[in-house]
Amino acid sequence: MNYNWNWGVLFQEPYLGWLIMGVQWTFAVALAAWVIALSVGILVGVGRTLPSRPIAFLCTAYVEIFRNVPLLLQLFLWYFVMPELVPNDVGQWIKRDMPNPEYLTAVIALGLYTASRVAEQVRAGIESVGSGLTNAAFANGFSVTQTYRYVLLPISFRLIVPPMTSEFLTIFKNSSLALTIGLLELTAQSQQIAEYTFNGFEAYTAATVIYVCIALMATVVMQVVERYTRIPGYMGSK
């Protein structure tokens, strides 16, 4: 094995700066996409459990479509295809004047994709509350809105915190796909350093260590959240 080790390359300019930029973009994409994923995902997930058939059908269709097409292809559809399909003026604006097109596209694509996964967790959470409490709420004269507002959502949101942790981690990992449309996030930067310096080992190690740190940080934060949101006597007793 012939290989010139040079760990110092990671701390030289411009490479150190590239890594820091990469981390910033990774966080910027993942966090913004998470906002979309949570808000759309909760709406769609709740929608799937509603008694209204058309709404439930639409939300199911959303989940099936977004889950069964690879994220990479969704990214390309938003980036290359969507501007051609909207009315001409809008398409022109997207192609010419929209600021940060790669970033916005990545956030929208990743957010709406993750929303379908969040929706599944929300639905599973609501369904796991069980029909007993729902029926009890109806028997007390609660409307559908009240049942969700006071019974189903408060319980199910606390139940789904652990699976949401893994979705939150996944969104950081999936943000690496943005490199395919030219956004220089962490993975892209490490590959660029590898190409410029021929020190692939060091560059990829740096990226790997940073991703592991992100995962550890997110796990610690979510453990705290889990401790505060756990329903006593609900999770421990199987």
Binding site: Y3, K173, T187, S190, A194, F201, A207, V212, I214
Partner: peptide, 22 residues
Amino acid sequence: NLIRSVPLILVIFWFYFLVPLI
């Protein structure tokens, strides 16, 4: 735990670089 905390693309890059080297 290591593999599960890094993106697949990075793993692909790793092996493209490592396998011929090894």
